[in-house]
């Protein structure tokens, strides 16, 4: 076994991927101060309307499934990256790294695209409602001003990305790097 043939980017990416589900939400949305609070990631979802939980039990269990899937992917990537140092298991290592290196990238991309698509839909649907607002994409603040039948509403909205999202992006990028690195060393 050769130490320097260990796929180090893959080891780091694997460890980050395993830890990722326990790092909390990736994105936060607040409407008002606590009227509506959303904390979202592929592994958990908190959706509170004046403190009342609105998340579906099915969705919660799907998040558990995704958590297990991502931890599994991280273990596969870590195992492949460590096996890369062995000539006997180099083919297996490549197979494991190829599988584990790209999954997190797809998850991060789908999550980000999903958020952006939801914001685009919300902004376009404001033409149909008595609400004129251009919500920011992923990060930012906006106050929606609405007047409906003599009632004037001012609704502050703020959204931001959490540190866990940065870890996810880093892990996904390192996963891709590990794939390229494995091609070079094998």
């Amino acid at each position: 076994m050769t130490c320097c043939k260990v796929n180090l980017p893959g080891v780091i990416a694997g460890l980050l991927t395993i830890a990722l589900p326990s790092l909390g939400a990736w994105w936060h949305l607040a409407i008002g101060s606590d009227a509506v609070i959303v904390s979202a990631s592929p592994f958990e979802m908190e959706f509170l309307v004046f403190g009342v939980d609105m998340v579906s039990p099915l969705f919660r269990w799907i998040c558990v499934g995704l958590k297990l899937g991502v931890v599994y992917t991280g273990i596969v990537l870590l195992t492949g990256s460590l096996l890369a140092s062995s000539d006997q298991y180099s083919k297996t290592a490549r197979l494991l790294i190829n599988f584990g290196s790209s999954k997190l990238m797809y998850l991060v991309a789908m999550f980000t695209i999903g958020l952006i698509a939801t914001t685009i839909l919300a902004n376009q649907s404001s033409d149909l409602l008595p609400v004129q607002a251009q919500l920011p994409y992923l990060v930012g603040s906006e106050t929606i001003d609405v007047i409906v039948e003599g009632v004037h509403l001012m609704i502050p909205i703020s959204m931001n990305l959490a540190g866990a999202f940065g870890v996810a992006v880093s892990a996904a990028a390192l996963g891709i790097v590990s794939r390229i690195y494995q091609k070079r060393i094998s």
Binding site: G32, S33, A35, V36, G150, V151, I155, P156
Partner: peptide, 11 residues
Amino acid sequence: LIGGITIGIED
């Protein structure tokens, strides 16, 4: 002011 949302009511 309800949960950070301001509601103005006339009449």
